[in-house]
Design a protein around this nucleic acid. Structure first.
Length: 699
DNA sequence: TTAGGGTTAG
């Protein structure tokens, strides 16, 4: 029948040509018929004609059909074509079999692809690439990598396409070490200029959280394209470096690369994260200029950015545009109102929503809980239970917060049971919410029990919840013990320390409070509003009338941590004018200020004034600061004089600092002395003095 | 001919 149709067609064609042609062979006629069906989109028909005919077809026709099978994911047809090809062509060209592998890969039939690959009598680089790509795109990253290693062992050279596929798989399984090796090969083969490989490496380093390498790789790409820029913006965002994500977005604009819509949303999320409204507005401007502002994803992201940055008016302005109302932007608008305390308006909007998702419900509930509207929240939870089955871990976390807010441990226990039955307890967010609920309700036994059960997945927030629950219920001693245990597992946050300070205030534990204050200063913790309040509370409760001093010290140390040495000295002057007497912490700050500014003479004066004028005996850290001050700024004679006159033996840290300063500033006498002292203290790893910069020899 | 990133809301 096909032959007949082809004959008819041929006759028609012949009638149109003036020069009579030789009659077409069967094969030619069939080819034309097949092509006619293909051109008309009748893939199945075309393949059935091909499959039924006992003659081979031109290779180009097989190639064409494989391509069409790929894009239509037509696995049955692909198998027929391959079968026909290997049956009727004694030696099918490798490229066609590669095509077949690619087609199987695209259709997700990795077993077919692998079978053909393994049975091929001969393979070329393209065969390996096709098979590796099939695995990489079929979600079998490990198999792709494994095949690449086998290819390498057989001495088959990888090309850029191989590397691109392999790097994609490396990114999936976060194979950092292998990626670094492949990076080496890429450099060796001279493929560094390839923007796809460069971007993939940026992607991998970013996903493996080594942003310094990601950035270095990005900077090495000669002409980064929109994808390269998108990757770097996205990775900075994921790493929590929103500021750099925004900076990179604007660099992209300056480089005249047209952002993708995803890049807009990434940059806008970054703006929300750091409340950078001005930058968000500028991005909005760019979107308008490029004509992306009405793109659904971009406009939803804009609405969310304005809502999160507190500019609800602008958010609503875009939301009112006809093209931008959808479930997501509705949710953003509700969330924006709810989280800014306008829960009544949020609820009105929520009730108007044409459709709602679990996220919309959670957004509204989060508004109630954030502003402690527990009764409304509870009522809303019951409404939610009636309206939808769709409840997730965020909902449960919020419901537990409601229980905590109402101090309703009975309800909390019911929720706990529900969570247990639904297997949601291993979620950290839910687990911590449970701890918080039991703690807030004063059910400390349950808190401890659950905390113990969470031992395999708890985090710093869990520890804080445990500690806070004890501190808030007057068990300050226990809170201190927990603080000690906590440090075996994680580092305390500023919230932990704030809680502890109030615990100290509660039990009039001045010494412990001072230790925690010192801990914060030594470890560079920010003395924020909460901590400052707790400090004032503690010192005043402990009948120390030093509250003013504490505030001055906080300010002074705050300046030190920001490298503002001059401000430290200014503050000290003001403090003296106010008649506030400094303490050893103040002097720690002053000396740090002098170190920042390189003021050796002034530092010496202040150090001496401690004992002479203020009757404060300098502590180890003050001596350490003086050594740092002299050592860092090259006051070597002063340093030598100072260290040799100290009323105690210098510590290893001090000697090491002196030793390093001598190497740097070329002071061999003192350097040798320090080395001798160190070697006496620890003979197993001897120090040898050597001057780093020869031009300074002679001093 | 074969290759890379990414989908906005709690």
């Amino acid at each position: 029948m096909g032959v007949n149709a082809a004959s008819v067609l041929n006759r028609l064609l012949q009638r149109n040509t003036h020069k009579p042609k030789a009659l077409p062979t069967d094969s030619k006629a069939l080819t034309t018929t097949v092509l006619t069906h293909l051109n008309a989109g009748r893939l199945r028909k075309a393949v059935s004609i091909l499959f039924a005919s006992p003659v081979p077809f031109p290779f180009s026709l097989y190639a064409r059909i494989f391509q069409i099978c790929s894009s239509n994911l037509a696995i049955v047809e692909a198998r027929k074509v391959e079968s026909h090809l290997i049956t009727f062509s004694p030696a099918p060209p490798i490229f066609l079999l590669n095509r077949a592998i690619e087609t199987y890969g695209k259709c997700g039939c990795l077993d077919d692809a692998r079978e053909l690959f393994e049975e091929m009598p001969q393979r070329d680089g393209g065969s390996w690439n096709a098979m590796i790509t099939a695995y990489a795109q079929g979600g079998c990253a490990e198999k792709a990598l494994w095949l690449f290693l086998r290819m390498n062992r057989l001495g088959i050279c990888a090309n850029e396409i191989t590397f691109a596929s392999v790097l994609g798989s490396c990114a999936t399984v976060l194979a950092l070490f292998l990626s670094k090796q492949i990076h080496g090969l890429i450099v060796k083969y001279g493929f560094c200029w390839n923007v796809i490989l460069g971007s993939s490496l940026v992607d991998i380093y970013g996903k493996c959280r080594v942003m310094s390498d990601a950035r270095r790789m990005f900077d090495e790409i000669e002409n980064p394209n929109a994808i390269s820029w998108n990757v770097i913006v996205r990775r900075y965002l994921e790493m929590g470096n929103e500021k750099e994500a925004v900076v990179m977005f604007f660099k992209m604009i300056r480089a005249n690369i047209r952002p993708l819509n995803f890049t807009f949303s990434n940059a806008l999320i970054a703006c929300s994260g750091i409340s950078a409204l001005q930058e968000g507005i500028q991005i909005h401007g760019v979107a308008i200029r490029i004509g992306y502002d009405e793109h659904e994803v971009v406009s939803s992201s804009l609405i969310d950015m304005y809502a999160k940055c507190g500019d609800l008016e602008s958010a609503c302005g875009i939301f009112e545009l006809p093209s931008s109302k959808n479930l997501i932007s509705w949710t953003s608008i509700v969330s924006g109102h709810a989280t800014s305390g306008r829960t009544r308006e949020a609820r009105e909007l929520f009730d108007e929503m044409p459709e709602r998702s679990v996220i919309s419900w959670n957004a509204m509930l989060a508004g109630y809980t954030r502003f402690c509207q527990w009764e409304e929240a509870l009522e809303f939870v019951f409404l939610m239970r009636e309206a939808t089955q769709d409840i997730d871990h965020v909902t449960f976390g919020l419901i537990l917060n409601v229980c905590a807010g109402l101090s309703d441990v009975e309800l909390g226990k019911q929720v706990h049971g529900f969570i247990y039955r639904h297997g949601l307890y291993s979620n950290l967010f839910v687990g911590n919410a449970l701890l918080h609920m039991y703690g807030k309700c004063g059910n400390l036994r349950s808190t401890r029990l659950w905390f113990y059960q969470m031992s395999h997945w708890r985090d710093r927030i869990s520890w804080n919840a445990l500690l806070t629950s004890h501190a808030r219920h007057g068990l300050s001693e226990e809170a201190m013990t927990i603080f000690g245990e906590m440090q075996w597992e994680t580092t305390p946050s500023k919230f932990t320390l704030g809680t502890l300070l109030s615990a100290c205030a509660n039990i009039f534990a001045l010494e412990q409070g001072k230790q925690i204050h010192g801990f914060m200063i030594r470890n560079g913790y920010e003395i924020d509003v909460v901590a400052r309040g707790a400090l004032v509370d503690m010192y005043s409760k402990c009948r120390c009338s030093f509250t003013d001093l504490i505030l001055w010290n906080s300010m002074i140390l705050g300046c030190c941590h920001n490298g503002r040495g001059r401000d430290v000295l200014g503050l000290f002057g003001l403090m003296e004018e106010e008649g506030v007497k400094p303490d050893h912490i103040t002097f720690q700050g002053i000396l740090l200020g002098c170190i920042c500014e390189g003021l050796a003479e002034l530092g010496t004066e202040h150090f001496n004034s401690m004992s002479n004028k203020y009757c404060i005996i300098p502590r180890l850290e003050h001596y350490g600061s003086m050594i740092e001050l002299y050592g860092r700024h090259g006051f070597m004679d002063e340093l030598e004089d100072f260290i040799k006159r100290m009323p105690f033996e210098p510590t290893v840290a001090m000697l090491t600092r002196v030793f390093n300063a001598c190497s740097e500033h070329g002071h061999s006498r003192l350097g040798k002395w320090a080395a001798e002292q160190l070697n006496e203290l620890n003979p197993s790893t001897p120090f040898h003095f050597q001057i780093l910069d020869r031009s300074r020899v002679g001093k």
